[in-house]
Design a binder for these strands. Structure first.
Lengths: 151, 151
DNA sequence: TGTGAAAGCTGTTCCGG
DNA sequence: CCGGAACAGCTTTCACA
């Protein structure tokens, strides 16, 4: 855990929105020189606050128009079955995210498909045949907004 | 929608894992020159396949050890109440993502908090007082894996 | 901490196969 | 479509207030 000042917070918020902007452009906006901005970014990386930079891919542009969040309840859950389930679900190409959670469901999956018919195929032939998969609950994504969070 | 070849797919998969790597380093690994790799990335950006690059912030390193997914069912849902709800929920600092979904719930929120006691505070004083908020269902995140998806 | 300047790479754009 | 060469701009480092 590390303490941030206002400038650090401004830097993080700006880079969460767009990680391509240069340290000089960012520094100019927040009233800091280019090396000063760069050193702060480096410090945040070394402190583990910045985990990396990730490409945001637009699945729709590739023909995957449907995104579904799937809550999955396992029928049997020992340590082995958790690992088996995770390994098997990670091998499904349509699965974008695997979240192990506590609550009504054991896993939450983010799945993309070309359309709803394609999603039904994934659900029936890939998900429901997973080792240990029990009850599922689906939510179809309509729109999504990513915020900075409490930075 | 755009057709990708193997090289495009390799580029996307590599940049989803780490968007910091240079076109020359990436090109060397997939057997392409630096300008050729750069041109492909540029083409993917212009086609809208690449939406941008985002910083991945480690909330735990900032003292936010608890991540909760919250399904929210609205009590009343006209067009106005949807917009009111979205505006109000976007203003809560602890909310990282707002997903408008179809299914048992109307919205799915990704919320971070310092600990479970802090989450209870957010839930009682921020979420439950939202305009139109009805039934909620929480899932506490244990671990998460982000995959490339069907690229 | 902050600034300013210098060195090495990268992104970006040419042109020719 | 690719690769090679050139330039501007950036990242990265250093010295100093």
């Amino acid at each position: 855990m590390i303490e941030l000042d206002d400038l650090d917070r401004q830097i993080l918020r700006a880079l969460v929105r767009d990680a391509t902007q240069s340290a000089s452009a960012l520094g100019r906006r927040i009233g800091l020189s280019q090396p000063a901005t760069w050193r702060r970014i480096k410090r945040l990386e070394e402190a583990g606050v910045i985990r990396g930079r990730q490409l945001r891919v637009n699945a729709e542009a590739l023909g995957f128009g449907v995104t579904v969040f799937l809550g999955v309840k396992l029928a049997t859950k020992g340590r082995v079955s958790l690992e088996d389930f995770e390994r098997a679900v990670s091998a499904i190409p349509e699965v974008q995210t695997v979240e192990h959670v506590l609550g009504l469901y054991d896993y939450r999956l983010r799945i993309v498909a070309r359309n709803l018919a394609d999603f039904e195929r994934v659900l029936r032939r890939r998900i429901m045949t997973l080792p240990g998969a029990g009850q599922v609950e689906a939510n179809v994504l309509l729109s999504e907004e990513r915020l900075a969070g409490p930075i």
